[in-house]
Design a binder for these strands. Structure first.
Lengths: 172, 172
DNA sequence: CGGATTGTTCAATTATGTTTGAACAATCCG
DNA sequence: CGGATTGTTCAAACATAATTGAACAATCCG
């Protein structure tokens, strides 16, 4: 028995959502965009955030009017970020999701998945730069480059000091 | 007398740069990408960062192989971010630029130009949401929404506490 | 088994953001 | 003035990233 049909009077697009739902979803769409994440991720998280009950992939597809592909990928990304968890709902086969709402967790996941990797590869690049500068012939130029490199390293140290403090502050 | 011709043996693309220059420029290209800024901005800042002398718009066009339009817009953005300053070079007509290298200044500019505006508009949206929730009919739903809204407001407060500390830490 | 359900993958499409380049304004100076 | 220089603007071209949708795997269950 196929039940996945929209009721006759429902629209295909997101106007299926009430004004309030739309507002919340938009709020998170903007939020994730600032973080450089795709719109669909904001929509999904927003939808979960505003739903009193956990939602399934199909619920999200239906309510947001996005494709199954988007929903699947979006949910995966959100899981990796630790921003959603699977909610065990009775003995159902399909899995339901609910949002993680603890700021510490959200920020932690973002740092782990989005910031750290860039810091790592940044450090690697700096390493190679140091090597290149050391084998610079012109002493005038070498001196200048060494200075600048030291500056970047100073930035990195400051940055390293910041992250822990940040995590601590957000726990409170 | 037209002098803007490349020497016969120079390539049009950025291989005009030495390996080291290229490395540094790429480093900043990656850096600004993480911040959600366009590649050309990273190239320009990187080029200035590695140059012992201030550079003009035309210098950047020539060395990076980007268009005048990109250079002009990129420099404007960097000025607004406080990431470059105009360097007064003798009595020349054209203006020369040098990078700002103090982390505090760079981060401050970024927060001012990219973070604050979003926080503002975010707060405005929350305001409208509060209004919408207050006029929610169903009491059960109203209770739930109020809880969630309180959660967002808690996030905002934590965030507000963070920025000043961050700026302080980066001064050091 | 075999059809129904749930979810994933990925090439093609679509949307978004960036860069270009030519036209234009502004200033300089012979 | 008038031609040369310096820089800006913005529509069109281009590049990049996100989304779709159809094909596919995996699991369930009658």
């Amino acid at each position: 028995m196929v039940m996945n049909r929209l009721a006759e009077n429902e629209l295909m697009d997101t106007s299926g959502l009430g004004a309030l739902e739309r507002q919340v979803v938009d709020f998170f769409v903007d939020g994730v965009r600032v973080l450089g994440l795709p719109r669909s991720i904001g929509e999904i998280y927003g939808m979960l955030f505003i739903s009193p009950d956990p939602l399934s992939l199909d619920d999200l597809v239906l309510r947001l009017g996005i494709s199954k592909g988007s929903a699947s990928q979006g949910l995966r990304a959100l899981k990796r970020l630790g921003a959603v968890r699977e909610a065990s709902v009775g003995e159902e086969r399909r899995t339901y999701f609910e949002p993680a709402v603890e700021l510490k967790r959200l920020v932690g996941g973002f740092i782990r998945e989005q910031i750290r990797p860039h810091l790592e590869s940044g450090k690697a690049k700096i390493g190679r730069l140091e090597a290149a500068v050391r084998s610079e012939a012109d002493p005038e130029r070498k001196k200048f480059l060494t200075e600048r490199l030291a500056r970047i390293e100073q930035w990195m140290r400051s940055g390293g000091r910041v992250l822990p403090v940040l995590q601590k502050l957000l726990g409170a």
